[in-house]
């Protein structure tokens, strides 16, 4: 169709959606009531919609194969796309609250799948409020990695409860992560970096990775390089602060 070819939101050279047509506010209020559809329980997550090539039918799918990585607040999806080729056998999902940004990531993944047949079939994105609905998507101990990259800093103390890493929300992340699973956080805001690290250090179900373990983990390298936000920080030669912790079992 002619119209399609002339669609200005798709780049002519790469076939990928152009970011400038998906501009959105930088922040979104996680406390407000949401009116988008949410799966009632993890068993209601339709894998055939997210991963059509791997799961042609949701009813007859292999129930043992589940999403293992979650990128919370995935933004424009840079990390997901890097992880997709690094862990081609692992199912992963990005969760983003901003509607337009989610649309962009959706289009981007679709375009990548077309341009690289057989690749990028293991990643998807959903518009959701992950601070409220993590248990609706993931069963207990389903995830092996959770990423929180450059989250909204919410400087004012009054708004600290809107931060995506907080002592109470860590309880829910610990529920979704299996023992041995890893939570990755990074920010360019020193105050927030300190906050996230303190929350994780004080939580009895998490322990910090050693520097050797950090060195050996391929995902750690992507934290500052893969995302759009991370590249922006690197361009401005800014500092980043990361905290990477492992889910441990509770002390008896």
């Amino acid at each position: 169709m002619l119209e399609n070819e002339a669609n200005p939101t798709i780049s002519k050279s790469t076939g990928l959606p152009r970011k400038r047509f998906y501009r959105a506010r930088a922040h979104s209020n996680p406390l407000s009531d949401s009116h988008f559809p949410i799966p009632i329980s993890p068993s209601e997550v339709d894998y055939s919609l997210h991963y059509p090539q791997l799961f042609p039918s949701n009813d007859q799918r292999d129930k043992n194969k589940k999403i293992e990585f979650a990128d919370i607040g995935c933004g424009f999806g840079g990390l997901l796309i890097s992880l997709s080729t690094l862990f081609p056998e692992t199912l992963m999902i990005g969760m983003e609250l901003r509607d337009k940004v989610t649309e962009y990531v959706k289009e981007r993944i679709l375009a990548l799948r077309v341009a690289n047949p057989g690749q990028y079939q293991n990643i998807s994105v959903d518009r959701t409020n992950s601070m409220k609905y993590i248990p609706n998507y993931f069963e207990k101990a389903q995830l092996s990695k959770m990423f929180f990259l450059f989250p909204d800093p919410h400087f004012k103390e009054k708004n600290h409860r809107r931060r995506v890493i907080s002592p109470y929300l860590l309880d829910e992340y610990a529920y979704a992560l299996r023992v041995g699973g890893i939570i990755y956080t990074i920010t360019d805001v020193e105050e927030l970096g300190e906050w996230m690290k303190t929350c994780l250090e004080n939580h009895p179900l998490f322990e910090a990775l050693t520097s050797e373990e950090l060195e050996a983990d391929p995902a750690v390298k992507l934290l500052s390089s893969a995302t759009e936000e991370g590249q922006k920080v690197a361009r401005n030669e800014g500092q980043t602060f990361q905290a990477v912790f492992r889910r441990i079992s509770a002390a008896p």
Partner: peptide, 15 residues
């Protein structure tokens, strides 16, 4: 007083 961190389960199904 040490807070309750361990979630046993979520009962999900109500709409």
């Amino acid at each position: 007083v040490n807070e309750a961190h361990e979630i046993q389960s979520f009962c999900l199904g109500h709409t």
